[in-house]
Design a protein around this nucleic acid. Sequence first.
DNA 1: AATGAATGAGGATTCATTCAT
DNA 2: GATGAATGAATCCTCATTCAT
Lengths: 191, 191, 191, 191
Amino acid sequence: MPKLGMEPKRRAALVSAVIDEIGETRSLDVTVAQIARRAGMSSGLAHHYFGSKEQMLIAAMRFILAEFSAHVRTELASAQGPRARLDAIIRANFAAHVFDPRKTSAWLSFYALAQSNPHAAHLMQLYQKRLRSNLLFDLRQLTARPIPIAESLAALIDGVYLRAALNETGNRETTAAQVSDALDMFLRAQR
Amino acid sequence: MPKLGMEPKRRAALVSAVIDEIGETRSLDVTVAQIARRAGMSSGLAHHYFGSKEQMLIAAMRFILAEFSAHVRTELASAQGPRARLDAIIRANFAAHVFDPRKTSAWLSFYALAQSNPHAAHLMQLYQKRLRSNLLFDLRQLTARPIPIAESLAALIDGVYLRAALNETGNRETTAAQVSDALDMFLRAQR
Amino acid sequence: MPKLGMEPKRRAALVSAVIDEIGETRSLDVTVAQIARRAGMSSGLAHHYFGSKEQMLIAAMRFILAEFSAHVRTELASAQGPRARLDAIIRANFAAHVFDPRKTSAWLSFYALAQSNPHAAHLMQLYQKRLRSNLLFDLRQLTARPIPIAESLAALIDGVYLRAALNETGNRETTAAQVSDALDMFLRAQR
Amino acid sequence: MPKLGMEPKRRAALVSAVIDEIGETRSLDVTVAQIARRAGMSSGLAHHYFGSKEQMLIAAMRFILAEFSAHVRTELASAQGPRARLDAIIRANFAAHVFDPRKTSAWLSFYALAQSNPHAAHLMQLYQKRLRSNLLFDLRQLTARPIPIAESLAALIDGVYLRAALNETGNRETTAAQVSDALDMFLRAQR
DNA sequence: AATGAATGAGGATTCATTCAT
DNA sequence: GATGAATGAATCCTCATTCAT
């Protein structure tokens, strides 16, 4: 059974299985056995690749974050001008794959995990810093008080995401528009 | 040793212990034994009063919610006019005892729990509905489009709270002011 | 099922089960489940009382040591004069219950354990110190060079015990006599 | 990479790794993976050469025994007369490489293993028989009662070694002298 | 009411061994 | 020969829950 170059595939399958499993149970109370079974391998192999359950969870979190970052970059690439770029960021935050119930469920669980797990906390801070600096970069060109707006906007994005994750209404278009509108208000109020 | 009228005290001690324990471990991974010990009784007695661990968690969540609601009412009682009342609500959301790390930690954990536990989900919805209707009541007197503003404001409050819970910066005055400012922007933009 | 005052009984039953189990498998590779079953309880309860498997092993070692010490004291109590006391000590080291295959097997395993386990090492040192000081006390009255004789005698006792444990010849009378004879030679040589 | 004549080297490397690993962990709780890694090969290859972990342990024990035997022969070769030969044997038992903590640690672990493992028991008996017959051969020329002295001397050697293994005092010169002195006493007492 | 003894299922992790390549 | 992927049984330990007293 052992094949060459299986490691990346196995790891990817496990990370995906972690997200699926969290999405299905809607909690972090998933067992390594469940994850491994879903990924089509034994629990022993899962440990062989990740060392511990915690590492699997962190890898899943990292994956979601990386995927999200990639999406932000893609959206930004095709945006013209600071206001359009801000909309691109907002859109990325509420894109289909980010809003996928499996992902929102995982993300919300990771918020809780970040309270007690240093690795998760670190990743969460990374996400927050990136969002903040992305927002600041464009806001600086649009307003004289970019910092409070960036912070409010970041909080708003997280808050909207949080509520959406909990209610699973999933009205994505509305959601992104709602945040974009709020941004308009912030900007107009500064004038 | 059985005394009359102990039940309310025992239940209160347990609820308090649940919150303390969650606050200390910063997660829901607390054991009934830990909770009971902290509350000064045996784990058997804890079960006697609550039937299950889940009920203890729900009771703790309910307690936090009730305490918060009471605080909102108190703040509202001394507020004059719709704008002042909105500030009262905002203030209540970031009051010392609500912002207490033990409470934010518990609240964030409950967010995660609400995904998989129907009782927790129900309480969470209750909280959200109350906040929404409280905001709407006053916003209706200040703007022609109260609903989107209420929703954005609610999301902002939750987002700010979420970020605070994670970062434990705990700069409460700033936080409340930040949200109040955002509200001003929302209102001004509507004019 | 829970009864009052069960703890001492349970602990004693577990300690005895540990020794029996080690004696039967003739190694430390015994499982908590086996021990608990032999002691007539669940593995959970075994952990409840001892916290860990290691603690159970240490408790068993401590028990054997205590039992041995008590026996030495008993033998010493009825011995008259230094030479007779030394014989009493030697006799105690090869008494029936000490020479019980279950005990020798456990003791030999503990020798190995003492290499890597600090608690076991500590108990082993305790045993060695006691033996040494017991021997020295009487040797001081019989010879001008008590220390080397005490050390040789202690090593001889341990060596004879070790060989007996391995070979299970169990010729106890011969064994004790052999050591006593050696002691005579040591003493005569000093004169 | 397969080279001719690698087998003896691989086996030697593994045997050496077993001893090092036991010496380092001071217990038999070493994994095949650790051993193989230390020997610079995969765990699969280790099995290929030895078939099982048990065989590796036995091979290590056999190696130590063979090395020791060779050393005894060397020492004996340069000894003149029975008393000197006995000293040679004693010296060999406490020679630097035999007294090496890695070796004493392994040897003590093998004592424990010999209780439950027939192969280990067999090797242990082999060692004991050889020591006994070596001692007897020369004692016969020095005393009328060679057997009890041989047995006491063997026990003394093992006991001293055991204590040294546990305490790691490693005062080799003293140790050998102590045993040689004891032998003198035994012999003098017989006269 | 109150205790804490008792259970036993469940879960993470380890590891010798096998085997496809 | 050589690798290391893969398995899965085994084991320690935890913990919610029950229940005799």
